[in-house]
């Protein structure tokens, strides 16, 4: 299927943002289209765009109502103008970007000290820690989107055997915590309330305000986890 011809719908997200939605799902083809459209808009934005936010299967454009209304001289709503401009963009095909697909290897300590939900997770799944670590580290994951917190990468999809609905009650989660929710896996960049099952922790900083690139991962990166011991974690 030509990825440029994926069906979509457009709707308003309040009066100052608009969302193009490709269907409420986690799918790599759809997500690739979202990211391609994101780059298309970033490289050739139209006046009045404030922010472009790609997600799993949608892309949202925050815009400046006053600027857009100034451009269209008030002949129609800002929403109508932005909708038309986006429809035009969507008519254009997106050239395949020649990106170096980055593969980022992330060390994770899967010891209970750094994995508060590990024991419960293992008993719910009736599996050993070794099995879990093997299943979680064997796959290469795709980063679908960055959202929620600065640098929080939504990755997937984990093996069916370690998929698990999120916890009913969120609790405070340490920075670097590696979690599972449904078929997603992710890393908390900052201490935060969280509802994902924490099965390990990485010593890497997913977010560092003082780094030239504060955010470690970006959408469409490939990620592999590898297991490190408690000692390795502490001396990392």
């Amino acid at each position: 299927m030509n990825q440029n011809k994926l069906p979509y719908s457009i709707f308003s997200l309040g009066d100052a943002a608009i969302t193009i939605d490709f269907g409420n799902m986690i799918d790599q083809t759809i997500n690739h289209q979202v990211i391609s459209r994101f780059h298309q808009l970033r490289e050739n934005p139209f006046l009045g765009i404030i922010d472009i936010v790609p997600a799993y299967s949608s892309i949202t454009i925050h815009y400046d109502i006053a600027k857009i209304r100034h451009l269209n001289s008030g002949t129609e709503t800002a929403f109508e103008t932005v909708e038309k401009l986006l429809e035009e963009k969507m008519m254009q095909s997106v050239p395949e970007r020649t990106i170096e697909k980055r593969l980022i290897k992330i060390p994770v300590c899967y010891e209970t000290e750094y994995a508060p939900d590990l024991l419960q997770f293992l008993s719910a799944k009736n599996m050993s820690r070794e099995e879990l670590v093997a299943l979680h580290t064997q796959k290469t994951y795709n980063v679908f989107m960055i959202g929620f917190l600065p640098g929080f990468a939504y990755m997937g999809e984990v093996d069916e055997k370690i998929a698990m609905p999120r916890k009913p009650q969120p609790n405070i989660v340490a920075a670097g915590s590696v979690g599972i929710a449904g078929k997603q896996t992710g890393i908390y960049p900052l201490i935060s309330p969280g509802g994902w099952h924490v099965i390990g922790r990485t010593p890497l900083k997913l977010f560092d305000a003082n780094r030239e690139e504060p955010i470690l991962l970006k959408a469409e990166d490939s990620v592999q986890f590898y297991s490190i011991s408690k000692v390795e974690y502490e001396n990392y």
């Binding site: 997200l13 309040g14 100052a16 943002a17 969302t19 939605d21 409420n24 799902m25 986690i26 936010v53 997600a55 799993y56 299967s57 949608s58 949202t60 925050h62 989107m145 959202g147 929620f148 939504y154 449904g182």
Partner: peptide, 13 residues
């Protein structure tokens, strides 16, 4: 019936 997949939100949502 289905969970809503994460997407953008805004001030006032």
């Amino acid at each position: 019936k289905d969970e809503v997949i994460s997407s953008a939100v805004s001030f006032g949502t």
